[in-house]
């Protein structure tokens, strides 16, 4: 088989670069729905929702949790994901993510009649933690 074209994927956050590698394809959750990027994709910029980034490399699937961000596909088969926070599935501390999830849910239940809870924010937190737990499980399954 001739040299197969690959994507150079970089997933980076303000704290660190989470992933930097050559891969066969990447699937991400964008604001418009899930898309898969293959080599020689046209240049594209699209915002990401809280969700996952799954890269396929040599037949293996590697999952990352993404707390929203921006996906940029460049013309030379470079894919850059700029995210506020992202983790590899194997790095996610499930216990901690679940604890955070529980905390947020309790906050919503307890303060149901209080006005000072920023519902939108807590709900966003819940979505993020749920996403994290989900992706960690996905990573363990394989």
């Amino acid at each position: 088989m001739s040299e197969k074209k690959q994507l150079h994927v970089i997933i980076t956050t303000p704290l660190r670069t989470v992933y930097d590698s050559q891969v066969d394809q990447i699937t991400v959750t964008t604001s418009e729905g899930e898309i898969t990027v293959l080599p020689d994709h046209i240049p594209l910029v699209v915002p990401l929702k809280v969700g996952q980034a799954m890269v396929k490399k040599e037949g293996r699937e590697i999952y990352h949790a993404i707390d929203g961000g921006i996906l940029e596909v460049r013309h030379n088969n470079q894919v850059v994901i700029l995210s506020d926070r992202s983790e590899n599935a194997s790095d996610i501390d499930v216990a901690r993510a679940e604890a955070a999830l529980k905390r947020a849910q309790i906050l919503i239940e307890e303060k149901h009649h209080e006005e000072d809870v920023d519902y939108a924010r807590v709900e966003r937190d819940i979505a993020k933690e749920l996403n994290r737990v989900k992706i960690a499980e996905k990573g363990q399954r394989k």
């Binding site: 418009e32 910029v45 699209v46 460049r74």
Partner: peptide, 21 residues
């Protein structure tokens, strides 16, 4: 020269999320 970018859903919305970031 960078190739023309495609924006989804549209340019303004993308810019609205890129600039604050």
């Amino acid at each position: 020269k960078f190739a023309q970018y495609t924006f989804e859903p549209n340019e303004q919305e993308v810019l609205d999320s890129v600039v604050p970031s």
